[in-house]
Design a protein around this nucleic acid. Structure first.
Lengths: 342, 342
DNA sequence: AGCATTTTCCGAAACGTTTCGGATTTATAC
DNA sequence: GTATAAATCCGAAACGTTTCGGAAAATGCT
């Protein structure tokens, strides 16, 4: 393993200058800078991270800790999460440590230990619930962390989120303008901040449109295709009270809804208008639906970029950058929504 | 962050003794050992991993480096790979660092840099090709690594693999015994060691059964359901030369084969016997096929346990444990194979 | 008591990097 | 040519841990 000393001996320079040359300091001659870089490349030098960590106090490690029950239908997005984060951190020079716990294990002790050891520069929190205890824990240890979504309604922590209230408002407004009066929504599971935000947006938008809110027409549950199918079937059970507009939390739910509606001989958009929020996952494209699906769109993958960027900024002590980012979603009207039949 | 020095001052001991006490050395009095441990707990001490790494030369980090084009149909197994490895290493006290490269990027430079930096105690290699350059690279740097599958026909590196020759031999033997004479096989992509091993097993088993090998009846390609469908359709195009037995590289291929055969009005097992190798992935269960699928079975998840175990043994310098493990697969005859029609 | 052993402890060096303060060289101005 | 400023370099200390070699204290043996 080549060290700075090796390079310094090889070039007749001091270790100091070699270090400064490689780290791009301004007080080293451009010529020697190049010489050093060439020598480093030639000797295959790569900095020893432990040594660097020791003196800088930063380990260069960030981590994601999760319970390992990732074998469900959300597989694909989980893989995108993990690989997306890894990729982003890698490009920013951080090592991404993945801690997958055995299924069903409470992750909190693992978080506590990781935080106490001080071995990690930062944490990424995903799948956060409202008032998530992990937020309190990491705050106590005063270690940087960034949250996907928001853990509270008015959080003090760094986060990246989409404007979930606005998302649903766009759907309702679009459908109300088309003339719909009987709405239904397939929301995510209760307890997650995004579900609550969407619920708030739903109620507010209905009120704004002068429509009554019907609690029975909102079903909370996992955002999967099977659940979308089952829940849709339940929503349309009672012929008398059938909604004419169905808003789905994501495209998987919408996919299930399509199947269920088809099975019930209801056509889209003639009998029912369907719209959804589209996270732009690779394995299910909203534009490939038939009829093509009206959506609000915010690429899931944007999150990783922002989350990584924010966390790195926090670690590097940049104060002037915003640590709370709310992204807006684009509304795309397609063929799955139309005016209701009279 | 409390350090050894803090504890030593607090107790009036030397840093040396505190270190040795915490690491359970025998040359420290039991009484002081307890005193030190209590003080450590009281002060919330947790060893600085960077400092330890620097002197021991072991970082406690193991890594998996991959090109990030994981958005294809193999998603689920990739997630199982990653989460499985992470879990196993975590339980063995190693930090699992995931390096996901942007899609299409040559991973070799990343491997070189990671190996040269000496920051990692070990590497896990998956999706290895025959004579994989990564094996040569890591061998050169003399850093421990373990391979899923084998990168050469008679490798010198540590690996965990299933006996792919025997796998196919079991299929052929079973089907030949039932009376089949016209075989076909959907194999994995060329260039991968397991595909080659399976090919060897296929040829050897046919010869053993006194049957001729027909090159046109073997199709190499991605082990996905769509490819299984397309390849099967092609194999059964020519009515005159239709095989009566089809061996599939995995259950996804088999799934595609089922669909294609159904579309061609060929029934299983009356017209065609189908069997496959089953990696026991969570998202597609062989026993849930209709008719239920005859398989050789080796749980993919066993690999992570063995790979992690082996790599940790190598890192800790255990010489007496076997570093090359070939697992046998269980053969399970089910309803998808039967004697051919006369 | 004197000596040998064992037990228990400690000082100092080392790991590879960054960084502080200052030293040396080179360029600029008069 | 000299004084001053700028550019370029370097020695030494520090980060927190482990470990080598040996020292001190306790114990055992005659």
């Amino acid at each position: 393993m080549t060290t700075l000393k090796d390079i310094s001996k090889h070039l007749g320079l001091s270790v100091t200058q070699v270090s400064r040359a490689l780290n791009g300091y301004s007080d080293v001659n451009e010529k020697t800078k190049k010489r050093v870089q060439d020598a480093a490349a030639e000797l295959g030098y790569s900095a020893n991270l432990s040594a660097r960590s020791l003196v800088t106090g930063k380990s260069g490690l960030v981590t994601l800790i999760r319970a390992g029950d990732l074998t469900g239908p959300a597989d694909a997005s989980n893989l995108e999460t993990i690989s997306g984060l890894s990729k982003e951190f890698y490009q920013r020079g951080k090592q991404f440590v993945l801690h997958m716990l055995p299924p069903g294990v409470d992750p909190l002790p693992a978080y506590r230990q990781a935080a106490a050891s001080g071995s990690f520069d930062g944490f990424v929190l995903i799948d956060t619930r409202q008032n998530d205890e992990r937020v309190a824990l990491l705050s106590k240890y005063d270690v940087p962390f960034v949250v996907h979504g928001r853990a509270e309604v008015d959080p003090s922590h760094a986060f990246f989120d989409i404007d979930n209230m606005a998302v649903i408002k766009q759907h309702v407004a679009h459908l109300a303008k088309l003339g719909h009066k009987r709405f239904a929504m397939l929301n995510g599971p209760t307890g997650f901040a995004y579900s609550e935000y969407r619920m708030m947006g739903y109620r507010a938008a209905l009120e704004e449109a002068g429509l009554a809110f019907n609690a029975a027409a909102v079903i909370h549950g996992p955002m999967t295709e099977p659940h979308g199918m089952i829940a849709t079937a339940r929503l349309f059970e009672d012929h008398a009270k059938r909604p004419t507009a169905l808003i789905c939390g994501n495209v998987h739910l919408a996919k299930g809804a399509y199947t269920a509606l088809d099975a019930m001989n209801l056509s889209i958009p003639e009998d029912v208008s369907v719209s959804a929020h589209d996270d732009v996952l690779h394995n299910l494209r909203a534009s490939a639906f038939y009829p093509s699906l009206t959506v609000t769109r915010s690429a899931f993958s944007d999150s990783w970029v922002k989350l990584a960027e924010t966390l790195c900024d926090m670690i590097d002590g940049k104060q002037d950058v915003p640590h709370q980012v709310v992204e807006n979603s684009e509304f795309i009207a397609r063929a799955s929504t139309a005016a209701p039949k009279l």
